[in-house]
Amino acid sequence: MVQISYVAHNGAVHKVTASLGISLMEAAAMNRVPGIEGDCGGFCACGTCHCYVDEKDAILLPEMHELERATLDFAYDVTERSRLACQIPITEQMDGIRVRLPARQY
């Protein structure tokens, strides 16, 4: 189990404890974190689990694949720190990670 902090666009922090191997999107959904929709259920098809990962934490994540990059084309306010939470499996090294959420989802 690892602790993850989801930081809403207004600064509110939602700390959750999550199991290894599930995605950041699944952990947010299981804990009713506002701002992560996950409408497609984690199939990288909707962009409603768009989040921002700090540069220092990006090295802990798998590389973005082409489908994720293409799906982000449909998200709002995409930056170089944008990722889809459904495509990020939780690992032990991610304990304490902070994931920032956009003001709106697609």
Rank of each mutant, 00 (worst) to 15 (best):
I4R: 01
I4M: 04
S5H: 07
S5V: 03
A8P: 00
H9Q: 02
H9R: 02
A12G: 02
V13C: 02
V13R: 14
K15P: 10
V16H: 15
T17E: 14
T17P: 02
S19T: 02
L20P: 01
M25K: 02
M25W: 06
A28N: 02
A28L: 05
A29C: 13
M30P: 00
P34N: 06
P34I: 04
G35R: 03
I36N: 03
I36F: 04
E37A: 07
C40P: 08
C40D: 08
G42I: 11
F43L: 14
F43I: 12
A45V: 05
G47R: 03
T48N: 04
C49R: 09
H50D: 08
C51A: 15
V53F: 11
D54V: 04
E55V: 15
E55H: 12
D57R: 07
I59D: 10
I59C: 11
P62Q: 08
P62G: 09
P62D: 06
P62Y: 06
M64R: 10
E66P: 00
L67G: 03
L67H: 09
E68H: 04
R69P: 03
T71L: 05
L72T: 05
D73S: 13
F74A: 14
A75Q: 09
A75M: 08
A75T: 11
A75E: 06
Y76L: 12
D77H: 12
T79D: 03
T79V: 05
R83N: 10
L84T: 10
A85R: 08
Q87P: 01
E92T: 14
Q93Y: 05
I97G: 10
V99D: 13
R100I: 02
L101G: 06
L101N: 05
R104Y: 13
